[in-house]
Design a protein around this nucleic acid. Structure first.
Lengths: 155, 155
DNA sequence: CCGGTAATTGAAATTCTTTCTCAGCTAGAA
DNA sequence: TTCTAGCTGAGAAAGAATTTCAATTACCGG
């Protein structure tokens, strides 16, 4: 495990946005961005921290929270409750976050659908609301868990 | 302030659902349901508690959490992050929760739009997903805050 | 390439939120 | 009215998030 993550993260979309906004690209910060971009799109701060420590051992939990806050402020992440048991989760994407969340196994599937975006925007416009982003979550049963009546599969 | 809340809450949609599911309709529980139904559609447990105590002084915070859990389990409420500063919030409605959330003042506007429901359902169906409910949040600036460049209005 | 400085850092303390425990109480069926 | 499973509040405990602070560091300008 070398320091490749620095170069990889530095070239990423998130790092670029932070830099543009005037934030410094430090080692710990890049480790967090690397985790979010390459490993975990949807994760709790704790999970991000655990993965981050594997990359940058001195990483502190505070830095994870701080970085997630910055990303949220820049509109690159957002807090959400995904599924039942999960605590505070954060996700990232452009300005659209569309998810299918399985009630049984907790699996999260990303969906990208322009029609929803259009519909939501026209809806907001009709009410004089200026949208910055949007979040759609459909919860229910994934294909796997519909077949399997009792026990959840993986997670 | 009499005990009218008992009769009012007892006749509500939430109380009826709890009763059908076999839960007892107790004083503390009805106070929470009253608050949720008549006063606060979108609220943190703490806020529900504060209002609830005004109605039923002996109310405990545990009961608020427990009642919100039951409502969530029955699909009548759901946890969500609404806006920036807010902590864990819960909302209630049938199975559809569509919100416009203002980034500046935190105002939450409910939206009811069949087209979104249809679109989301057809989307899910195409992926073999069986939807139980859905949640859409559009965040941005409300009409008021677009005009007012600096300071948020009420809250 | 180097120095200065304001931003950033991790650890620890703190605060806030949520869950658990338990002995007493109560709604509602019989 | 009686009985009992379910419900209660208080306090303790666990868990999550934020704050503080002295030490460190990215990176701009020279």
């Amino acid at each position: 495990m070398t320091d490749d993550y620095v170069e990889i993260a530095r070239q990423g979309r998130l790092a670029s946005a932070l830099h543009t906004a005037g934030y410094k690209l430090t080692g710990p910060r890049l480790a967090v961005l690397y985790v979010l971009e390459m490993e975990l799109c949807h994760a709790s701060p704790q999970e991000v921290y655990e993965r981050g420590v594997a990359i940058y051992p001195a990483l502190g939990l505070s830095t994870v929270y701080r970085t997630l806050d910055i990303l949220t402020e820049l509109g690159l992440a957002r807090p959400a409750y995904l599924g039942d048991a999960s605590q505070r989760f954060t996700v990232h994407h452009d300005q659209r976050h569309y998810h299918l969340v399985c009630d049984a196994c907790g699996a999260i599937t990303d969906v990208d659908e322009d029609r929803i975006t259009e519909l939501a925007c026209s809806l907001a416009a009709g009410l004089g609301f200026k949208p910055r982003g949007q979040y759609l979550e459909i919860y229910g049963l994934c294909q796997h868990c519909q077949a399997q009546p009792a026990r959840p599969p993986v997670n």
